[in-house]
Amino acid sequence: MTTTTTPEATKHPGQVLLSVAVVLLGTALAYGTSQLPEASGYAKVGPRLMPSIVSGGLFVLGLLLLKESLTGGFHSIDEDEHAATPTNWPAFLWISAGLVLNGLLIVTAGFVIAGTLLFVLSARGFESRAYVRNAVVGMAIAGFTYAFFTYGLGLALPAGILPF
């Protein structure tokens, strides 16, 4: 990599982004707080008080994090170590897909089917490609918990397209 005018800043772009996100979260909360109704009564304690403290706190903490990230990086984090083990994004995406599909399907297709799919996709994220076996194991786990919760505890889970 070529040296730039601010070498420290370019070293930790993730840290800088994260710090900015905390500052923005504090700002957004402060805006939301200003939209809340004013407290009535002379004590001036109402629903705005705590959000003001929290948004102010996040704003200041975000600025302090930003300062750390720009001056040598977050305290006691080994960025070289992270660079040595690059993130396995396909694994990340397999598991993400499993969870998002679960959210989309749990009510319509039912707990057992959505759970089985989640199991197979997540196992794929962990490099397990025995799809048929994983589907059987996943269905066994999801089916057992479904039966236990629905019939044992009386906590109904969505049956979906399955008849039971």
């Binding site: 199991f119 997540s122 996943g138």
Partner: peptide, 14 residues
């Protein structure tokens, strides 16, 4: 590991 973590995720959604 694949079985363990995938099983945990089913319980998580449950």
């Amino acid at each position: 590991k694949p079985m363990l973590y995938s099983g945990i995720l089913i319980f998580a959604t449950l």
